[in-house]
Write a protein that binds this DNA or RNA. Structure first.
Lengths: 227, 227
DNA sequence: ATTATAAGGATTGTCAACAAAAATCTAACC
DNA sequence: GGTTAGATTTTTGTTGACAATCCTTATAAT
């Protein structure tokens, strides 16, 4: 685990720093609302403030941080209404991705999706919600990839990352996991059948149901913000 | 028409510069593929290179420019396959927006949309495709606004701006204009009826039909790139 | 004439220093 | 003891300078 990392690529420093900062933020090392001190980052990452600045500005576009003039950059706080908005956006992206993937997915991509679906069934049985979340991301990415639309892929990832600022306590119950993967099965079947309308509908519905699942799990543990 | 403009807002310079550059690029003053010289922008906008750098990095995130390491920043070239991808993305966003707007649009917003629809009918009759394009943007923005989802609104605008890098010769014929506004009417009716499914479907279809219209108008004038 | 090569200029990459604003601490006053 | 005003420190905003890279041009050899 390197403390000071120079540019990994042969290309610009700012890009590398941006990716590092993204990792740091998504890992939860800095809590939402917490301030990022430019000088501190300078020492930690071994680059000058200009570079840090370019990187944080880029992160602002990705909505991972918020920049308050003359006050600095803080990790963005995503509240419940924000998260609900993001689910709706992802639902739209999913609809488009489902439609395209149904028409374009290769047999190899379908096989890969089926394999993921199987593995997730095992994780559901083991009630391993953490591993399920990882596999779930992989499944969604795979559908986006199969859509053959790079912009769609990229936007979905951006929005999902943004959402990750909210989902800290995103632990779903075993029943919810099971339903979620049943929906994956329906998506997969629609893709196999090359049924564009069904794939669009099922993928979109899967996201909207995910929104409902979040609301449910919120009802069961509504309190946050201790201390 | 000021040549050198300082920060309009009381806030950071980079933000203002970013907006100015965005306007400059979208206006077509710099052609796609053309290089933006940092020093030249420095003189023109009256700020230092650091600021220009922050602004162009931000523009890169919006996909309006491409930054090639050690080579500089160029206005992005959006080719036909790129544009087709963007139509599909917007179709997904439209689907989500239609669904939400049907549930949330206020009577005032509906009245505003109806008014725009009427005005566009006049423009169709006058075959004024330039004014139609402007009004069309307003109509789409209004639906996005009515969806009550700020992220959706913002992403749609970003993608549409990106698309504008392609649409230079986007002149539609009178027949196409007429069909386009008929579709607006169907969207409006679905919204008035608060029929979420219909609104989602019609708005999505409107974008996908727009993609087809682009392909048509491409067939009639396939050649580009003179000189 | 064409190509290869080297010198020179132009442009981007990175940094450190200065200026301005905000936050913090101190002290005086009620 | 609490509050306010001022000074100090910290942090961000902006700039100019230096280093590295790329592009152009001139020159020479085949």
């Amino acid at each position: 685990m390197p403390k000071t990392v120079k540019a990994a690529d042969p290309v610009s420093l700012a890009t590398g720093v941006r990716e590092q900062l993204e990792q740091i933020i998504l890992s939860g090392e800095y809590a939402p609302g917490e301030r990022l001190n430019e000088l501190a980052l300078t020492e930690r990452l071994g680059v000058s403030r200009g570079i840090i600045r370019e990187a944080t500005r880029s992160l602002e576009n990705a909505r991972l941080v918020e920049i308050i003039p003359n006050r600095g950059v803080v990790v963005r706080t995503v509240d419940v209404p924000d998260a609900l908005e993001l689910f709706d956006v992802r639902a739209g992206l999913a609809s488009a991705a489902g439609r395209l993937a149904a028409a374009r997915a290769t047999t190899e991509q379908l096989r890969s999706l089926a394999k993921l679906h199987e593995e997730m069934n095992d994780l559901v049985r083991g009630n391993d919600s953490v591993s399920y979340a990882t596999a779930n991301h992989a499944f969604h990415d795979a559908v986006m990839l199969a859509s053959g639309n790079s912009r769609l892929q990229e936007l979905d990832l951006t929005v999902r990352n943004e959402m990750q600022l909210y989902i800290r306590k995103g632990v779903l119950g075993e029943a919810q996991l099971k339903v979620s993967n049943l929906e994956h099965g329906r998506i997969l079947n629609a893709l196999k059948a090359a049924d564009a309308e069904a794939a669009a509908r099922e993928f979109e519905l899967h996201i909207l149901n995910g929104k409902q699942r979040m609301l449910e799990s919120l009802r069961s543990s509504p309190a946050r913000r201790a201390s």
